[in-house]
Design a protein around this nucleic acid. Structure first.
Lengths: 196, 196
DNA sequence: GTCTATATGTCGATAGAC
DNA sequence: GTCTATCGACATATAGAC
């Protein structure tokens, strides 16, 4: 037996941890999440998480920044992929966002957790800066009223996912309507993904 | 000296604690808030908070339910106060909501914290039920598309307040536009209130 | 109705070996 | 690059006095 070593490069470990942390932070919130839970999710020991990121707060901040970068990248790609002469980019960016929700749920939810912790001296400024960067990008390709409504819908989507409403089977007609309205055509795909 | 007793009826104490708890939970989140901080904010001892509410979780749930009741009441009042023959209730309910934001900021923020903790076995169901009740009320007086956009804007407002963005003095033109767009005419009043 | 004292558990962080 | 062991701080909750 060649005994594949379990040692892997720090850069790769960091990625694993960031992925795990986004998921746990997104579910439990910043204070509710523990570095130990994150460590186990990543398959390593708790002290090693802190060794690589310095502190729980720094880890959260890194998650936040990675999330923003991912969203901006997705938006840029959607804008670039839109047909020549497109005037209304909303459908393209919207689809990109819903796609992110499907694949990177924890990522978006931890961003939401960051926004909502605005009062925190360390986290607040980073979250606000991220929000502004994302909003500015939207404003590059649409007027203020549209950008406001667009980002508002994004916040609703985040809140719905975080609340777990889409997973609840027995809710009234109204909520089904709301989900269709908020998620659009891809609703069924999103629901499938959430149930997985 | 007649020595005014500090003993007050439990019902009144409960109110004080709920008010304090809404504010602290709203700022720090469910896990981040401590029963001790809430107790001090309410001017009593930490064990007494638990004596009156049983547990931290129960206290949070009570805060959530009170918040929902307050919002529903405000919406009902706004609908009732609208002129005879009103077709579009959105301006009236919208103003009512922004008014709530001004006076009961912590209340709305703790509701937001509840939504975002949907995964929690105890809190999730309560938060979801509250969301549905509020959305159903909106649907009573407007079509699905409008209700979706309306509640989405509400979520954006909550997120903006929680993030602290409106308090940051040096942000670009875009954010100022966004705030005007999201809060409408009452923006300056809201900002005043937030700064207080 | 309200407090003090405290049990009990947990979590972030550090030290140091391999 | 990764772990075990552990410290010290803090938080919820309980017991019981006034």
């Amino acid at each position: 037996m060649v005994s594949t070593s379990d040692r892997i490069p720090a850069s790769e470990r960091r990625e694993q941890i960031l992925e795990a942390a986004a998921s746990i932070f997104g579910e439990q919130g910043y204070s509710g999440a523990t570095t130990d839970r994150i460590a186990r999710e990543a398959g390593i020991s708790q002290p090693y998480v802190l060794r690589l990121f310095g502190s729980k707060e720094q880890l959260f901040i890194d998650v936040l920044q990675r999330t923003c970068a991912r969203i901006l990248l997705a938006f840029d790609a959607a804008i670039a992929a839109a047909p020549e002469g497109t005037e209304d980019f909303r459908p393209f960016i919207g689809d990109a966002y819903v796609s992110l929700v499907k694949t990177d749920r924890g990522v978006l939810l931890s961003l939401m957790q960051g926004f909502i912790l605005g009062h925190d001296a360390g986290i607040g400024p980073v979250a606000r800066a991220g929000f502004m960067r994302i909003y500015d990008r939207l404003r590059d390709v649409m007027p203020a009223e549209e950008a406001m409504a667009f980002i508002a819908q994004g916040m609703l989507i985040n809140t719905l996912i975080a609340s777990g409403l889409p997973l609840e089977l027995k809710h009234g007609r109204n909520i089904e309507e709301l989900l269709e309205c908020a998620f659009g055509d891809e609703l069924s795909l999103v629901l499938e993904e959430l149930n997985a």
